[in-house]
Design a protein around this nucleic acid. Structure first.
Length: 508
RNA sequence: CGCGGGGUAGAGCAGUAGUAGCUCGCGAGGCCCAUAACCUCGAGGUCGCCGGUGCAAAUCCGGCCCCCGCAACCA
């Protein structure tokens, strides 16, 4: 069986999951679901990033041992699976035993390769921010956020990773793989970054200052810096280094990440893989950010949109639909409740839900509630075929919004078709054959929608199928290629008109 | 000369050379199968500004202004 591996980045567990991460994991889920339809065996990984200073301090604040604190947050992220209807089959925590062992092994490999070395490290530290500051961040030698405080100079011995050594190999690699980073402008961005020159980066901290991390092998005074450990999850989740079979089956994979993560994913992580003698990732797909009402979401502004709240208020599919349709492909997008409800009403309620409803009502009234005789010369069969082609092309470059636009265009054609053909008149005039043809075309088109929408809004896909008298898509044995063909909807099936799919919001 | 994205109808966006498009909203009409839904038509834009190249520019080139991220561990 063909294999496919996809992973999200691991969110840091110092806050509740917000819709930015929801977007990422939903996008990954769409890809995974589509690949599954195509017959791939999927390994779909997500999880939580749990080490590092911020978490250590957050835990202290909430008077919990870090382990407990992480447990609590990891649970909240795990709940997304249900809430967002995700199909991931692996959830890694960077505090998992096997991950820790893998990280230490990875470290040793880099060390054997001469890429880890110790040197004195000096950094400027702002106590106000509790953060190191680089020179570029300073204004007149002071932290712009806390200009009254003097910066502390911290000095300690750190291990460094020889990032600089990989400038040329990385550039060669990018050149050979023009699709390595999607979209193109992110690909260009990372090349520019690497061309500018790479500085070795610090890969460890003194344990006495920051104990919450993975121990450096053979040097218990040091723990690794959090991202060095975190990046390795993309292979430790596959059982590397022990489970060679699984690793070889699935690696390399596609990594979905936010634009803030471009350098880490596309440059640092790739250099680390080179150092450890492992193959590069297959592809990095970078998505944009979500603003709330045009503003960056932040706790201090108090405008953070929480994924769970959306699901609670509007449901899983409406949330998925909004994020996939309204956030522009590759770019930043804006969230507002107004826009959300507009999308919901116009697309999901008026176009999709209403089409299903009116079609099924007519089948009940005019065809005894049974799918009528199938027709060959459908005006829709060709359009469905073309839409499938477009979906396939666009899916390769992760243009989810465009795909949904295409699918809903087809939907709108179906609504037009009803007005054109006026089945109610055909019924009055007893034009049975034409009437059945029209209704079959509509029902079959709806069946096709059901499949097209499966990666995006799976519950709706199920419900649509159910109301057409079909069973839900059982992903394990669903013959996708066959089901895409026009006419797979058998006549005589009894429909099961059910509840309104998406009741309109804000009526009244 | 730090890096990147953006400035197109009231709002949100698509469109990378050849009659300016989509969704929502707005106005008029149609229909009655349907979730006050659906369908048709219409109003509304000097495509940020200035200059250049072209028969032709939102689209290419140069300059400028404005907005938003990032600036080496926050999706």
């Amino acid at each position: 069986m063909k294999k496919f591996y996809i992973t999200t980045t691991l969110p840091y567990v110092n806050a509740d999951p917000h819709i930015g991460f929801a977007l990422e994991v939903i996008q990954a889920d769409v890809i995974a679901r589509y690949k599954t339809l195509q017959g791939f065996e999927i390994f779909f990984n997500t999880g939580t990033d749990e080490h590092g200073t911020k978490i250590y301090e957050k835990a202290k604040e909430s008077k919990l041992p870090p382990e407990k604190y992480c447990d609590e947050y990891a649970e909240r992220f795990k709940k997304l699976k249900e809430k967002l209807n995700l199909t991931y089959n692996n959830f890694i925590r960077t505090t998992d035993d096997h991950h820790i062992k893998a990280v230490q092994k990875f470290w040793k490999k880099c060390q054997e390769n001469g890429d880890i070395y110790k040197r004195n490290y000096k950094a400027k530290y702002c106590v106000g921010c509790e953060m190191e500051k680089t020179d570029s961040e300073l204004e007149n030698g002071r932290c712009p956020l806390h200009p009254n405080r003097k910066l502390e100079i911290i000095e300690e011995e750190n291990y460094f990773f020889r990032f600089s050594k990989y400038q040329k190999p990385l550039l060669d690699f990018y050149k050979k793989h023009p699709d390595f980073v999607i979209p193109k402008h992110r690909y260009n961005e990372v090349i520019k970054f690497v061309e500018k020159g790479l500085k070795d980066f610090s890969a460890s901290r003194l344990k006495e200052k920051m104990p919450w991390g993975i121990e450096v092998p053979d040097d218990p005074d040091h723990v690794m810096y959090v991202w060095f450990d975190a990046l390795i999850n993309y292979i430790s989740c596959l059982g590397w280094p022990d489970n060679k079979k699984k690793f070889n089956n699935f690696w390399p994979g596609v990594q979905v990440a936010g634009k803030d993560n471009l350098r880490q994913q596309a440059a640092m992580w790739q250099a680390m893989l080179l150092s450890a003698g492992l193959p590069h990732s297959k592809q990095i797909f970078i998505h944009g950010f979500i603003t709330a009402d045009g503003q960056k979401m932040s706790k201090s502004v108090g405008n953070v949109i929480n994924a769970s709240d959306l699901v609670k208020k509007y449901g899983t599919d409406a949330t998925r639909y909004f994020l996939l349709r309204e956030i522009p492909d590759y770019e930043d997008g804006d969230f507002t409740y107004k826009r959300f409800e507009e999308r919901y009403n116009s697309d999901l309620a008026n176009d999709l839900g209403n089409l299903l409803n009116r079609t099924l009502t007519m089948i009940e009234k005019y065809c005894d509630g049974k799918i009528p005789k199938s027709t060959k010369d459908s005006e829709f069969s060709k359009q469905c075929e073309e839409t499938w082609k477009k979906i396939d092309e666009l899916m390769k470059v992760y243009k989810f919004s465009q795909i949904l636009e295409e699918v809903f265009r087809l939907l709108s054609k179906a609504n037009q078709y009803i007005d054109e053909k006026k089945p109610w008149e055909l019924a009055k005039e007893n034009e049975k054959e034409e009437l059945e043809k029209v209704l079959y075309n509509l029902a079959e088109t709806l069946r096709q929608f059901g499949i097209m929408l499966y990666p995006f809004i799976p519950n709706t896909s199920d419900k649509t199928r159910e109301q057409l008298g079909l069973s839900e898509i059982d992903i394990k044995d669903f013959d996708f290629e066959k089901e895409k063909n026009w006419g797979e909807l058998k006549s005589g099936i009894e429909i099961k008109k059910g509840k309104t799919l998406f009741p309109r919001l804000g009526n009244q």
